[in-house]
Structures are given as C-alpha cells and as structure tokens.
Amino acid sequence: MAFQLEQVQYKDILKIDKLQIPEAKITCIIGESGSGKTTLLRLLNNLISPDEGSIFYKGRNIEDIDPIQLRREVVMLPQNPTVFSGSVKDNLLIGLEFAEKDKVRDDVLSEILRLAQLDKPLSTIASTLSGGEKQRLALARIMLLEPEVILLDEPTSALDEGTEERVIESVVEFAKGKTRTLIMVVHSKSIAQRFADVAVTIQGGGVVAEEGL
C-alpha cells in the first residue's frame, strides 16, 4: 500500500476510521465541496498533521519521515498553484532546482509541456498565461520531477471539458508508464469511472464508499 490511514481525525473536518490507497494505481477522490477532500491530500504529504490517528506511507508512519524527504517523494499540486516570475522554462527548471535534481535539455522540457497539453514556447512569460494554462504549467513542473506519488487537487478546475479529459488522460498515462501512484481529487464521477483504479467517496469528512473500478 502507498498509504494506510487508521483512526485519523483532523479538527471537525475529517474523520476516517480506515483507508488504504494502493501503490502504483490511480485513485480518484470524489465528494461535495467542503467534504474534506483537500484536507486528506494535505495530510498525505504531512503539510498538516492529524489530531488523532496514524498515517503510514509504504509501511512507515509519516511522522517518522523527514518532511522534506516525504514531500520530494509525495508531491502535491494545489487548486491554485504557484507560478513564478520569468519564463515557462524558468518555472520548469525551478522545480528541479528545489528538488536538487539536474537540469534537463530544452527538448525534454518541451515534451513535458506537450504531455501537460500546454502548447506554449519555453520563452513565454509565465505571468501572461491564463488560469488554465498556469494549472497545466504547474502540472508539467511536477511531472518533470517524476515523484513516487502525485497528489492533484482538482487539477483541471479551470479547463473546459474537452481539455480536462485530455489533460487527465495524459497524466494518467504518464503515471502508469512510470509506475507511479496518482491520487486525484476530481469533481466528476464520470472522470473517476473512466480513469480510476479505485474511487474513494468522502461525505461529511468520512469515507462513505471505497470501490475498485
């Protein structure tokens, strides 16, 4: 298992008796707004800590793992990701710099943009991008890192339906091709049914359904 949660409670937002998230699979988390989906993602890479209970990552309690090491393996893309000043290329390279990884060639950067469905030159000034384009740039930055676990919080909320499906299909293929664990909060049950290996439904801060698809 990639993650195992036992008797986890966080404020009055989330209360999960037991949840297992498989390794190297696609897990979609669905539920109404305010049900605790984003809180769950933030718990998985220790951006916040539970008030009660335990979370295990590959069998180790995440409280026993160095937070920086954990967040290099378990990388989260929030709904409103940070876009740095400078060009698209600068934004891609800064992710590698933060992760202390070597720089890569421009053709590798262009390919990762293609995978993220962002058809922009590397020289494009990032601040001129639309909201949806900034989401895809941030997604490309994470894919470039090839982390063990990718956490996506509604990664396509600013996209039209057609672009949304292409982006999710691409990142799912990427995760499967690299044998990575992908955990996505999605707003659409149809997206979960199409792409997920496992769907977790959260309602009122608790898991009400957990099913393989």
Rank of each mutant, 00 (worst) to 15 (best):
F3D: 06
Q7A: 11
V8N: 06
Y10C: 12
L14D: 07
D17I: 08
K18F: 02
L19W: 09
I21R: 09
I21S: 09
I21Q: 09
P22S: 13
A24H: 10
T27I: 07
T27G: 01
C28H: 09
E32R: 15
E32M: 14
E32S: 15
E32N: 13
S35D: 02
S35K: 02
G36L: 11
G36Q: 09
T38F: 06
T39H: 05
L40W: 01
R42L: 11
L43C: 13
L44W: 09
N46Y: 10
L47E: 04
E52V: 13
G53H: 06
I55R: 03
I55T: 03
K58G: 15
K58I: 03
E63L: 12
D64R: 07
D64G: 10
I65T: 07
D66Y: 01
I68G: 12
L70I: 07
E73C: 14
M76R: 10
L77K: 05
P78S: 14
N80I: 11
P81V: 00
V83H: 08
V83L: 05
F84L: 01
S85G: 04
G86Y: 00
G86I: 00
S87T: 00
D90S: 03
N91Y: 02
L93V: 06
I94L: 05
I94R: 05
E97Q: 08
F98D: 06
F98H: 15
F98S: 10
E100H: 15
R105S: 11
D106R: 07
D106T: 01
D107G: 15
D107H: 08
V108D: 07
L109E: 08
L113R: 13
L115Y: 11
L115P: 04
Q117Y: 05
L118A: 00
D119N: 10
P121K: 00
S123G: 12
S123R: 05
T124W: 09
I125C: 07
T128P: 00
G131A: 01
G131I: 08
G132D: 11
K134S: 06
R136F: 01
A140I: 08
A140P: 08
R141L: 08
R141Q: 13
R141N: 11
P147E: 01
P147K: 03
P147S: 10
V149P: 10
I150F: 07
L151R: 00
L152C: 04
D153H: 04
P155G: 04
L159D: 02
D160T: 04
E161W: 10
E164V: 13
E164Q: 15
E165M: 03
I168A: 12
I168D: 12
I168H: 04
E169H: 12
V171D: 01
F174E: 02
K176I: 15
G177Q: 00
K178W: 04
T179Q: 11
R180W: 01
M184K: 08
M184S: 09
V185H: 10
V186Y: 04
H187E: 10
H187Y: 01
S190I: 13
S190P: 13
Q193Y: 08
V200P: 14
V200R: 09
T201S: 13
T201W: 10
Q203W: 15
G206L: 06
G212R: 13
